[in-house]
């Protein structure tokens, strides 16, 4: 594949390319649509911790919150009687590429007030840490594990942060990052070599090892095998 050649699978070897425009343009998206009661309440309550707000896709309100205070803000949104965002509908991350910070996205829904709100926190690529919200919503357990697995964001205080979709011993990195090529970081030859030289212990999950201990290597010695019951009788 030649560099710059338009192909259906452009970027297979390099990772997907996005435009290098900033993700957020000043003033864009912040007009139109009626105000959202939670957005103004958040700005009033947390002041400068609400970095900016946007309206997307016509009527979807987005709040950018300060990353170190994510738990505090989300807890208030969940517990305050005027907000009551009790359903964490989704938790995911977005990589815009080009070295820009990753965004952690919380999709909230309030059963009481029938309102939706999107909260975003940005984490810098050289410090991919954010506080876990598992203590607020149990849903976040697997969703944060998925984000950790596919983006490499470290959720502080998560009870069981390990890979979930990729194999536990996957060494090529975090696949949904923009710098991750579609076919993986290693060459086909290297991937095959690693697959063939896997330790059999890798077949055991962390959970099994925690319960039953690391399995010991037992050579198949015919003398050690129990006698055939039919022969013995």
């Amino acid at each position: 594949m030649t560099e710059g050649g338009a192909s259906a699978f452009e970027g297979v070897e390099r990772g997907p390319q996005t435009s290098l425009e900033p993700a957020h343009k000043e003033g864009e998206g912040s007009t139109g649509g009626p105000g959202h009661p939670s957005v103004s309440a958040l700005q009033e309550k947390f002041g400068s911790a609400v970095l900016r707000t946007e309206v997307q896709a016509g009527d979807q309100h987005v709040v950018f919150a300060e990353t170190p205070r994510n738990c505090e803000i989300l807890q208030w949104l969940r517990d305050d009687p005027a907000q009551r965002y009790d359903l964490l509908a989704d938790l995911t991350a977005v990589d815009y590429g080009g070295g820009r910070p990753l965004q952690v996205v919380y999709q909230l829904w309030s059963m009481t007030h029938k309102r939706a709100l999107r909260v975003k926190c940005e984490v810098d690529l050289d410090d991919l840490v954010i506080e876990s919200v598992v203590r607020l919503w149990e849903t976040a357990n697997w969703l944060e594990r998925e984000v950790y697995d596919l983006f490499g964001i470290d959720f502080e205080g998560h009870p069981d942060l390990r890979r979930i979709l990729m194999p536990q011993n996957y060494e090529e990195g975090h696949p949904l990052r923009k710098d991750f090529p579609l076919r993986g970081r290693f060459s086909r030859a290297e991937q095959t070599k690693r697959a063939l030289s896997q330790d059999y212990r890798n077949d055991y999950s962390v959970v099994e090892i925690a319960l039953g201990g690391t399995p010991a290597l037992r050579p198949m010695d015919p003398d050690e095998l129990p006698a055939d019951p039919e022969e013995a009788s």
Partner: peptide, 16 residues
């Protein structure tokens, strides 16, 4: 959940 940068391909396509 779709994120677009205005191009022909999504920046992020997330299935809830």
């Amino acid at each position: 959940y779709l994120v677009s940068d205005g191009g022909e391909k999504p920046v992020r396509w997330r299935i809830r």
